[in-house]
């Protein structure tokens, strides 16, 4: 089989083994309740990780998303507190802001030929700063629409609850998979990851694709912010610090090459679930410090990068191309 599928299979196998270990220790972990919670708790991370997958597939990085999520929460909370607008138009307004924000970063990256790392780092500070400007304190969200969304769920067999936000994440993944692997835009994203210069020579619209990729990441960060506001019922400018790094970790653990050009949106879902599973295990155990999550994720990440490095070396040698770019 294709060697590039290996990281994806590795992720799936690790997930299954991890789940089996959890199940042996705590049989209750295989209930739909746990699965429902896994989806709900990681909904915001999953959604933003889909956007991150596209960015990383194209060979870029988006460090701004954590700040954009925090900004989104504060923006929604302040708008709902200070105006009489219904949440839905507020959401529409927010999504256009974050999408434009992402598009602007994409345009800067392309037009000025700047490294995405620097541009989105600037975006990270900018979005966090805007959140502070709106409110330094945590702003609670009280609205009937929020109560309705939070109390709406589909009762799965076994009394597990699939909440709206959990379902939303699954839908975003489905759309992401189709977009990445079944459209010309998706192929262009992979093409950029394979080599911008070559892609340009082959007629890929580099400017449009770059702008769209970061706009998509901004859109999904905004959506993730909305989901996070449902999850916490508040907007706080200090929330979700470092979530961009969690998202990058989920993408890499999901088998996407950090250098771009190869990977799977579906893998990112597994990556997110692995991270959630570790968290759940620690909750079940009750005696472990939550820092163990970070340690295990760190170890997994290292393992995956080594695996990818090995694969790249392997395929590079089999193709017989000496002196790479």
């Amino acid at each position: 089989m294709n060697a590039r599928m290996l990281p994806f299979y590795a992720t799936v196998v690790i997930f299954l083994i991890a789940y089996a270990i959890c199940y042996i220790q705590f049989p209750a972990m295989l209930s739909t309740r746990v699965i429902g919670n896994l989806l709900t708790d990681n909904a915001f991370l999953g959604i933003v990780a889909v956007g991150m997958t596209f960015v990383i597939l194209s060979g870029g990085i988006d460090l701004s998303v954590g700040s954009v999520i925090a900004f989104s929460g504060v923006f929604i909370a302040v708008m709902l507190r200070d105006t009489s607008m219904h949440p839905l138009p507020v959401f529409a307004l927010l999504l256009s802001i974050t999408t434009l924000f992402g598009a602007a970063m994409g345009l800067t990256i392309h037009a000025l030929q700047m490294p995405p790392f620097i541009v989105t780092l600037a975006g990270m500070f900018l979005a966090r700063g805007m959140a502070y400007v709106l409110s330094v304190d945590s702003v609670p969200i009280v609205h009937p629409f929020y109560e309705w969304v939070q109390s709406t769920y589909w009762l799965m067999p076994g009394k597990g609850r699939l909440t709206l936000i959990g379902g939303m994440m699954l839908l975003v993944f489905l759309a992401g998979i189709l977009l990445a692997h079944r459209t010309r835009f998706g192929t262009n994203v992979f093409a950029l990851g394979g080599g911008v210069q070559t892609a340009r020579l082959m007629g890929v619209p580099v400017a449009r694709t770059t702008v769209l990729i970061y706009a998509l990441s901004g859109l999904l960060a905004g959506l993730s912010g909305i989901v996070f506001s449902f999850y916490t019922s508040a907007g706080y400018s200090l929330a979700t610090v470092g979530v961009e790094l969690d998202a990058i970790a989920a993408v890499v653990i999901g088998g996407t090459l950090l250098t771009g050009g190869s990977g799977f949106v579906a893998g990112t879902l597994i990556g997110v679930l692995i991270m959630g599973l570790i968290q759940t295990y620690i909750t079940f155990d009750g005696t472990l410090s939550s820092w163990w999550t970070k340690i295990v994720i760190g170890a997994l990440l290292l393992g995956f990068i080594v695996l990818q490095k090995g694969l790249v070396g392997l395929t590079g040698r089999s193709a017989g191309t000496a002196g790479g770019r």
Partner: peptide, 8 residues
């Protein structure tokens, strides 16, 4: 140097 995309 083949100007195609090896990852596609």
């Amino acid at each position: 140097e083949v100007n195609l995309l090896p990852n596609l």
